[in-house]
Protein backbone atom coordinates (compact mmCIF):
# COMPACT_ATOMS: atom_id res chain seq x y z
CA UNK A 1 0.00 0.00 0.00
CA UNK A 2 1.45 3.31 -1.09
CA UNK A 3 1.61 6.30 1.20
CA UNK A 4 -1.28 8.69 0.74
CA UNK A 5 1.03 11.43 -0.55
CA UNK A 6 2.13 9.14 -3.38
CA UNK A 7 -1.34 8.19 -4.65
CA UNK A 8 -2.21 10.21 -7.73
CA UNK A 9 -5.73 10.03 -9.21
CA UNK A 10 -6.28 8.94 -12.81
CA UNK A 11 -7.61 11.72 -15.09
CA UNK A 12 -11.23 10.47 -14.95
CA UNK A 13 -11.15 10.16 -11.18
CA UNK A 14 -9.50 13.55 -10.85
CA UNK A 15 -12.24 15.30 -12.84
CA UNK A 16 -14.86 13.46 -10.80
CA UNK A 17 -13.25 14.48 -7.52
CA UNK A 18 -13.02 18.07 -8.74
CA UNK A 19 -16.72 18.16 -9.62
CA UNK A 20 -18.00 16.58 -6.39
CA UNK A 21 -17.89 19.68 -4.14
CA UNK A 22 -19.62 21.82 -6.80
CA UNK A 23 -22.39 19.26 -7.28
CA UNK A 24 -22.78 18.76 -3.53
CA UNK A 25 -23.10 22.50 -2.93
CA UNK A 26 -25.75 22.76 -5.63
CA UNK A 27 -27.70 19.80 -4.24
CA UNK A 28 -27.50 21.17 -0.71
CA UNK A 29 -28.88 24.50 -1.93
CA UNK A 30 -31.74 22.94 -3.89
CA UNK A 31 -32.74 20.70 -0.99
CA UNK A 32 -32.61 23.50 1.56
CA UNK A 33 -34.54 25.78 -0.75
CA UNK A 34 -37.16 23.09 -1.28
CA UNK A 35 -37.66 22.59 2.44
CA UNK A 36 -38.12 26.30 3.07
CA UNK A 37 -40.44 26.77 0.10
CA UNK A 38 -42.65 23.90 1.27
CA UNK A 39 -43.12 25.66 4.58
CA UNK A 40 -43.64 29.07 3.00
CA UNK A 41 -44.05 29.42 -0.79
CA UNK A 42 -43.23 33.15 -0.52
CA UNK A 43 -39.90 32.60 1.21
CA UNK A 44 -37.27 34.99 -0.20
CA UNK A 45 -34.13 33.70 1.48
CA UNK A 46 -33.50 30.61 -0.62
CA UNK A 47 -35.40 31.06 -3.89
CA UNK A 48 -35.85 28.01 -6.10
CA UNK A 49 -33.99 27.58 -9.37
CA UNK A 50 -37.03 28.67 -11.41
CA UNK A 51 -37.30 31.89 -9.42
CA UNK A 52 -33.61 32.54 -9.99
CA UNK A 53 -34.07 31.77 -13.70
CA UNK A 54 -36.92 34.30 -13.87
CA UNK A 55 -34.76 36.91 -12.16
CA UNK A 56 -31.90 36.30 -14.60
CA UNK A 57 -34.34 36.63 -17.50
CA UNK A 58 -35.70 39.87 -16.09
CA UNK A 59 -32.32 41.44 -15.37
CA UNK A 60 -30.22 40.18 -18.27
CA UNK A 61 -32.59 39.79 -21.21
CA UNK A 62 -35.33 42.37 -20.79
CA UNK A 63 -35.13 46.11 -20.90
CA UNK A 64 -35.69 47.90 -17.66
CA UNK A 65 -38.99 49.76 -17.67
CA UNK A 66 -37.38 52.67 -15.90
CA UNK A 67 -34.20 53.18 -17.93
CA UNK A 68 -35.02 51.39 -21.19
CA UNK A 69 -31.71 49.50 -21.07
CA UNK A 70 -30.73 46.06 -19.83
CA UNK A 71 -29.59 46.58 -16.26
CA UNK A 72 -27.42 43.49 -16.01
CA UNK A 73 -25.23 44.54 -18.94
CA UNK A 74 -25.12 48.17 -17.78
CA UNK A 75 -23.88 46.97 -14.42
CA UNK A 76 -21.36 44.60 -15.95
CA UNK A 77 -19.97 47.22 -18.29
CA UNK A 78 -19.66 49.83 -15.55
CA UNK A 79 -17.89 47.48 -13.15
CA UNK A 80 -15.59 46.04 -15.80
CA UNK A 81 -14.56 49.51 -16.88
CA UNK A 82 -13.70 50.57 -13.35
CA UNK A 83 -11.75 47.44 -12.52
CA UNK A 84 -9.91 47.43 -15.86
CA UNK A 85 -8.83 51.05 -15.54
CA UNK A 86 -7.93 50.62 -11.87
CA UNK A 87 -5.89 47.47 -12.23
CA UNK A 88 -4.14 48.66 -15.41
CA UNK A 89 -2.99 51.85 -13.75
CA UNK A 90 -1.94 49.85 -10.69
CA UNK A 91 0.08 47.51 -12.86
CA UNK A 92 1.76 50.42 -14.63
CA UNK A 93 2.59 52.17 -11.36
CA UNK A 94 3.75 48.92 -9.83
CA UNK A 95 6.02 48.22 -12.77
CA UNK A 96 7.64 51.65 -12.85
CA UNK A 97 8.10 52.06 -9.10
CA UNK A 98 8.99 48.39 -8.60
CA UNK A 99 11.74 48.40 -11.22
CA UNK A 100 13.10 51.69 -9.87
CA UNK A 101 13.13 50.38 -6.31
CA UNK A 102 14.52 47.02 -7.27
CA UNK A 103 17.27 48.12 -9.63
CA UNK A 104 18.47 51.57 -8.61
CA UNK A 105 19.87 51.89 -5.06
CA UNK A 106 19.29 55.65 -5.01
CA UNK A 107 15.60 55.24 -5.81
CA UNK A 108 15.31 52.34 -3.36
CA UNK A 109 16.75 54.49 -0.57
CA UNK A 110 14.29 57.17 -1.53
CA UNK A 111 11.04 55.28 -2.05
CA UNK A 112 11.18 51.72 -0.73
CA UNK A 113 10.22 52.49 2.88
CA UNK A 114 7.57 54.94 1.77
CA UNK A 115 5.89 52.30 -0.41
CA UNK A 116 6.12 49.75 2.41
CA UNK A 117 4.35 52.13 4.82
CA UNK A 118 1.83 53.13 2.16
CA UNK A 119 0.88 49.49 1.67
CA UNK A 120 0.03 49.19 5.37
CA UNK A 121 -2.70 51.85 5.27
CA UNK A 122 -6.05 50.03 5.10
CA UNK A 123 -7.56 51.28 1.82
CA UNK A 124 -11.13 51.08 3.13
CA UNK A 125 -10.21 53.46 5.94
CA UNK A 126 -9.34 56.19 3.46
CA UNK A 127 -12.34 55.58 1.20
CA UNK A 128 -14.11 58.57 2.81
CA UNK A 129 -11.03 60.66 2.06
CA UNK A 130 -11.18 59.56 -1.56
CA UNK A 131 -14.87 60.45 -1.77
CA UNK A 132 -14.17 63.86 -0.27
CA UNK A 133 -11.16 64.58 -2.46
CA UNK A 134 -12.22 62.98 -5.74
CA UNK A 135 -15.99 63.27 -5.44
CA UNK A 136 -18.54 60.50 -5.77
CA UNK A 137 -17.91 59.84 -9.47
CA UNK A 138 -15.83 57.26 -11.29
CA UNK A 139 -12.51 58.71 -10.18
CA UNK A 140 -12.84 57.87 -6.50
CA UNK A 141 -13.76 54.24 -7.26
CA UNK A 142 -10.78 53.82 -9.57
CA UNK A 143 -8.57 55.51 -6.99
CA UNK A 144 -9.69 53.07 -4.33
CA UNK A 145 -8.74 50.13 -6.53
CA UNK A 146 -5.36 51.74 -7.26
CA UNK A 147 -4.77 52.54 -3.62
CA UNK A 148 -5.69 49.00 -2.66
CA UNK A 149 -3.60 47.16 -5.21
CA UNK A 150 -0.73 49.37 -6.45
CA UNK A 151 1.43 49.29 -3.28
CA UNK A 152 1.29 45.49 -3.25
CA UNK A 153 2.29 45.28 -6.92
CA UNK A 154 5.09 47.83 -6.37
CA UNK A 155 6.52 45.78 -3.54
CA UNK A 156 6.11 42.53 -5.39
CA UNK A 157 7.87 43.93 -8.47
CA UNK A 158 10.69 45.31 -6.34
CA UNK A 159 11.15 41.86 -4.86
CA UNK A 160 11.11 40.18 -8.29
CA UNK A 161 13.74 42.59 -9.61
CA UNK A 162 15.91 41.97 -6.56
CA UNK A 163 15.56 38.24 -7.19
CA UNK A 164 17.12 38.49 -10.64
CA UNK A 165 20.55 36.85 -10.42
CA UNK A 166 23.18 39.56 -9.95
CA UNK A 167 25.26 37.64 -12.49
CA UNK A 168 22.85 38.79 -15.21
CA UNK A 169 23.23 42.46 -14.34
CA UNK A 170 27.00 42.14 -14.30
CA UNK A 171 26.98 40.24 -17.56
CA UNK A 172 24.93 43.02 -19.16
CA UNK A 173 27.45 45.59 -17.95
CA UNK A 174 30.31 43.63 -19.50
CA UNK A 175 28.29 43.79 -22.74
CA UNK A 176 28.43 47.60 -22.49
CA UNK A 177 24.84 48.14 -21.38
CA UNK A 178 23.93 51.36 -19.57
CA UNK A 179 21.31 51.45 -16.82
CA UNK A 180 18.43 52.31 -19.14
CA UNK A 181 19.39 49.55 -21.57
CA UNK A 182 19.54 47.08 -18.70
CA UNK A 183 15.99 48.11 -17.78
CA UNK A 184 14.74 47.79 -21.38
CA UNK A 185 16.44 44.58 -22.41
CA UNK A 186 17.20 42.64 -19.22
CA UNK A 187 14.86 43.65 -16.40
CA UNK A 188 11.60 44.64 -18.08
CA UNK A 189 11.14 41.53 -20.25
CA UNK A 190 11.93 39.32 -17.30
CA UNK A 191 9.57 40.97 -14.82
CA UNK A 192 6.60 41.28 -17.21
CA UNK A 193 5.45 37.69 -16.64
CA UNK A 194 5.89 38.29 -12.93
CA UNK A 195 3.80 41.43 -13.25
CA UNK A 196 0.99 39.35 -14.71
CA UNK A 197 1.28 37.04 -11.72
CA UNK A 198 1.11 39.97 -9.34
CA UNK A 199 -1.95 41.34 -11.14
CA UNK A 200 -3.65 37.95 -10.94
CA UNK A 201 -2.99 37.86 -7.21
CA UNK A 202 -4.32 41.37 -6.64
CA UNK A 203 -7.48 40.95 -8.73
CA UNK A 204 -9.29 39.51 -5.71
CA UNK A 205 -8.51 42.63 -3.73
CA UNK A 206 -9.46 44.80 -6.72
CA UNK A 207 -12.95 43.23 -6.83
CA UNK A 208 -13.32 43.71 -3.09
CA UNK A 209 -12.55 47.42 -3.33
CA UNK A 210 -14.68 47.85 -6.44
CA UNK A 211 -17.76 46.35 -4.84
CA UNK A 212 -17.21 48.24 -1.61
CA UNK A 213 -16.95 51.54 -3.46
CA UNK A 214 -19.99 50.75 -5.61
CA UNK A 215 -22.00 49.74 -2.56
CA UNK A 216 -21.43 53.09 -0.93
CA UNK A 217 -21.79 55.57 -3.76
CA UNK A 218 -22.84 54.63 -7.26
CA UNK A 219 -25.73 54.57 -9.70
CA UNK A 220 -24.82 51.41 -11.54
CA UNK A 221 -22.44 48.50 -11.24
CA UNK A 222 -22.55 44.92 -10.08
CA UNK A 223 -21.78 45.82 -6.47
CA UNK A 224 -24.27 48.67 -6.54
CA UNK A 225 -27.07 46.34 -7.76
CA UNK A 226 -26.39 43.73 -5.10
CA UNK A 227 -26.54 46.27 -2.31
CA UNK A 228 -29.59 47.95 -3.85
CA UNK A 229 -31.75 44.84 -4.10
CA UNK A 230 -30.62 43.71 -0.67
CA UNK A 231 -33.26 46.13 0.64
CA UNK A 232 -35.97 43.91 -0.84
CA UNK A 233 -34.26 40.67 0.22
CA UNK A 234 -34.02 39.87 -3.50
CA UNK A 235 -31.84 36.81 -3.17
CA UNK A 236 -33.02 35.71 -6.63
CA UNK A 237 -31.03 38.65 -8.06
CA UNK A 238 -28.16 38.69 -5.58
CA UNK A 239 -27.19 35.05 -6.09
CA UNK A 240 -26.85 35.18 -9.90
CA UNK A 241 -24.94 38.46 -9.58
CA UNK A 242 -22.50 36.89 -7.15
CA UNK A 243 -22.12 33.90 -9.46
CA UNK A 244 -21.56 36.25 -12.40
CA UNK A 245 -18.85 38.20 -10.52
CA UNK A 246 -17.19 34.90 -9.69
CA UNK A 247 -17.30 33.84 -13.33
CA UNK A 248 -15.89 37.19 -14.45
CA UNK A 249 -13.07 36.94 -11.91
CA UNK A 250 -12.34 33.42 -13.08
CA UNK A 251 -12.27 34.51 -16.73
CA UNK A 252 -9.96 37.43 -15.93
CA UNK A 253 -7.60 35.12 -14.13
CA UNK A 254 -7.68 32.47 -16.83
CA UNK A 255 -7.10 34.91 -19.67
CA UNK A 256 -4.16 36.52 -17.88
CA UNK A 257 -2.66 33.09 -17.34
CA UNK A 258 -3.12 32.21 -21.02
CA UNK A 259 -1.73 35.57 -22.10
CA UNK A 260 1.38 35.03 -20.01
CA UNK A 261 1.94 31.55 -21.41
CA UNK A 262 1.52 32.82 -24.93
CA UNK A 263 3.76 35.88 -24.53
CA UNK A 264 6.46 34.40 -22.32
CA UNK A 265 6.97 30.73 -23.18
CA UNK A 266 10.50 30.81 -21.75
CA UNK A 267 9.12 31.78 -18.34
CA UNK A 268 6.68 28.91 -18.00
CA UNK A 269 8.95 26.15 -19.21
CA UNK A 270 12.04 26.74 -17.16
Amino acid sequence: MKRLINVHPQPALRIGLTLIPFVLALIAYVVASDIRLQENPNDKLLPGLTAIGDAIDRMAFQESKRTGTILFWDDTLASMQRIAIGISLSALLGLVVGIGNGLVPLIRANLSSFVAILSLIPPMAILPVLFIVFGLGELSKVMLIIFGTAPFIMRDMQQRVLELPPEQLIKAQTLQANTWQIICRVVLPQVLPRLIEAVRLSLGAAWLFLIAAEAIASTEGLGYRIFLVRRYLAMDVILPYVAWITILAFMFDLSLKQLSQWLFPWYHKK
Binding site: P165, E167, Q168, K171, A172, L175, Q176, A177, N178, W180, Q181, C184, R185, V186, P189, Q190, F264, W266, Y267, K270
Partner: peptide, 28 residues
Protein backbone atom coordinates in the same frame (compact mmCIF):
# COMPACT_ATOMS: atom_id res chain seq x y z
CA UNK B 1 25.52 29.73 -13.89
CA UNK B 2 23.03 32.51 -14.62
CA UNK B 3 25.38 33.95 -17.25
CA UNK B 4 22.87 33.91 -20.08
CA UNK B 5 19.53 35.66 -20.35
CA UNK B 6 16.64 33.19 -20.01
CA UNK B 7 14.20 35.35 -21.99
CA UNK B 8 16.35 35.47 -25.12
CA UNK B 9 17.12 32.81 -27.71
CA UNK B 10 20.70 31.74 -28.36
CA UNK B 11 21.03 34.13 -31.28
CA UNK B 12 19.49 37.04 -29.38
CA UNK B 13 21.71 36.34 -26.38
CA UNK B 14 24.78 36.67 -28.57
CA UNK B 15 23.77 39.74 -30.60
CA UNK B 16 22.80 41.54 -27.40
CA UNK B 17 26.39 42.75 -26.95
CA UNK B 18 26.30 44.40 -30.39
CA UNK B 19 22.84 45.83 -29.81
CA UNK B 20 23.88 47.50 -26.56
CA UNK B 21 26.79 49.19 -28.32
CA UNK B 22 25.04 50.21 -31.54
CA UNK B 23 21.75 51.46 -30.13
CA UNK B 24 22.58 53.37 -26.99
CA UNK B 25 18.95 54.34 -26.44
CA UNK B 26 17.11 51.04 -26.20
CA UNK B 27 19.71 48.41 -27.02
CA UNK B 28 17.73 46.91 -29.87
Amino acid sequence: KYSVFPHLTVLNNVILGVEFTKNRLFGK
